[in-house]
Design a protein around this nucleic acid. Structure first.
Lengths: 343, 343
DNA sequence: TTGAAAGCGCTAACAT
DNA sequence: ATGTTAGCGCTTTCAA
């Protein structure tokens, strides 16, 4: 025989108690809770009243046990905590994500996972049925995690184009190439003719795409000196790259850095070398991060629609949750050049 | 009759299957999984082998259903996403937290919750049995959430001294007062005699404590000019506070800002006013954040042992999880002055 | 030390 | 439209 209304330690009211209170069966009560339409207005009201009166809240564990779903999605930040939290980029993504999710019953879980061990943990979470789907952000391009997750049968969506793109995993990304092109073109339009760039690492699509944009902007232009130095998106690399660039061409008059920290590093090197910004050398960064509002001079930078990216990311996942066989195309969102003092 | 080994859609092996494979009862299998000692070595091995062979993973929903626990703890960041991710402070906390948690079966959930609605959601999570305990970080001092959570019967631990401390909620904090005092004393020892401070907001203990530290350092010192301007921890407020300070005392030769962004703002204002740092004016910030490594000149700042704070935070919660009646004293960790270029 | 069995609270299939 | 019921996979008495 079933539960006899015995009060439990936890004291939380159960659906059974709601049913009793409302004078209906547990089945009907369940239907009301889950928004089924096949319920008489009368029963509907009775159950709703009972729920309110008792302060009933569904037990998610019990529900998951039978539905085999968790109603939870996971955002994995495949990056060291430092970088994550150092960049408001992520903040904004999360906000968009939350917005989109708030209209669903889906819970959002956040997890940092840069090491292989932590990646295993993510896969476990999926296999455990702890999460119904996974969103990944900022992983280096050759990360096997998305593929593994896919293989485990979990819906997956990414922020950032995977560099070794099998085309299997849907993603959203900013239009890095256009952004870089716009920045470089702007530099050219300002009359700059010795335009350098500081690139990101080779294993990240964002770095690659921004370099392509720089090249595309200058393609076919005559009388322009091009200079490329490699960085790793970090500030120190920007500083040393700038020194290197200055050594190669002391007369360079502009530099497009593929990230704001690198641009900030460049600013330092320029300052140390006695160059005035933007008078002698114009500088543009990428990301329009908090940093861009803290440098001296303030940094002109390419901004990404991060919040929208977050929304789209959620959308991509939700679509798959609804239809596991959905074929989804990448979502590429436009960037915008934000003018400040450095260029 | 119970489950007949019927293969389910999800395909995950169940404890039942493990038991069959190992030729023991489900009860015994369960005991092995949960590390009970009352199991014969023989059965132990058989079950372990079966688990490995089948790739068995416990179903958390089923487990939670019976244990009434979720084995999940929640970290609530009671702050806007921007600030969270803008500060590596949080990153480091999370890392310490994860470390401490990794030796337990506890899952970590992250959640941003600055609005009242989101706070409600946190309480729901607790009532739903979704999480067994909650850690809160960076809430403004008068936040009612911790008390409400406590009332709901959930173990709670905080980062940051609650300003209206009922003494009921255990917390860990950096020794803000000592840190501020050390910074101010350092300024004094360098021969500075017109020492200003830019404070944080009134409703946050960190701001209050840092101001006390500044005052304590100068207490009883003769021939020292003291100046106080109010900020809100943000960079813009630091910049305008600095201007204000400069107007009040054009000859001031040092400033201690209660946050790095405010110090960065001060740097800008100083630069705009034609002051050299540190030659004319020495500047010290607080937090030793990423920003401190990106300003020009690099920022001398008070660093907090954030990672340790994270570990302690987890410890505080775990202790309560084990013993709900545990009475825990606040944990205050020491700070350290990191010298760079600005002072 | 082990097995048997009673539920944990819920959804969904089936019957009415 | 509603009630009944069979489990979801697990832990934990209770007996043996």
């Amino acid at each position: 025989m079933a539960g006899k209304g015995r009060s439990r330690a936890s004291g939380r009211p159960t659906l059974e108690q709601v049913a009793v209170e409302a004078n209906v069966s547990r089945g009907t009560a369940s239907r009301v809770v889950n928004g089924s339409l096949e319920v008489s207005p009368y029963a509907l009201k009775a159950v709703r009243d009972a729920i309110r009166k008792l302060g009933y809240v569904p037990n998610q564990a019990a529900r998951s046990l039978v539905t085999q779903r968790s109603d939870t999605v996971l955002l994995v930040v495949s990056e060291s905590e430092d970088r994550v939290f150092g960049e408001p980029f992520f903040a904004s993504i999360v906000r968009g994500l939350s917005q989109e999710l708030s209209s669903t019953p889906l819970q959002l879980n956040l997890m940092m996972a840069s090491t292989a061990r932590q990646h295993d943990r993510v896969e476990q979470l999926v296999r455990n049925g702890h999460v119904d789907g996974v969103m990944l952000i900022s992983l280096h391009g050759d990360d096997p995690l998305p593929q593994n997750l896919l293989a485990a049968g979990a819906p997956v969506a990414l922020i950032g184009r995977p560099v070794a793109d099998g085309g299997a995993v849907p993603y959203v990304d900013a239009d890095n190439e256009s952004g870089a092109r716009a920045a470089t073109e702007y530099l050219y339009q300002q009359g700059r003719r010795r335009i350098a760039t500081i690139t990101g690492p080779r294993d990240m699509a964002a770095g690659l795409d921004r370099l392509s944009g720089y090249r595309a902007a200058l393609r076919g232009k005559r009388g322009v000196t091009r200079l490329v130095a490699r960085g790793d998106f970090g500030q120190a690399s920007g500083e040393s790259a700038m020194r290197e660039l200055l050594a190669k061409d002391p007369k360079l008059d502009a530099v497009f850095a593929a990230s704001d920290p690198m641009a900030a590093g460049a600013l330092r090197a320029l300052w140390a070398a006695g160059r005035r910004v933007p008078d002698d050398v114009a500088v543009i960064g990428f990301d329009d991060s908090e940093l861009a509002r803290n440098t001296n001079p303030l940094l002109t930078s390419v901004s990404q629609p991060t919040q929208r990216m977050g929304r789209k990311l959620a959308e991509l996942l939700i679509t798959q949750l609804r239809d596991p066989d959905a074929k989804l195309a990448p979502v590429i969102l436009p960037t915008e050049l934000v003018r400040r003092e450095s260029a």
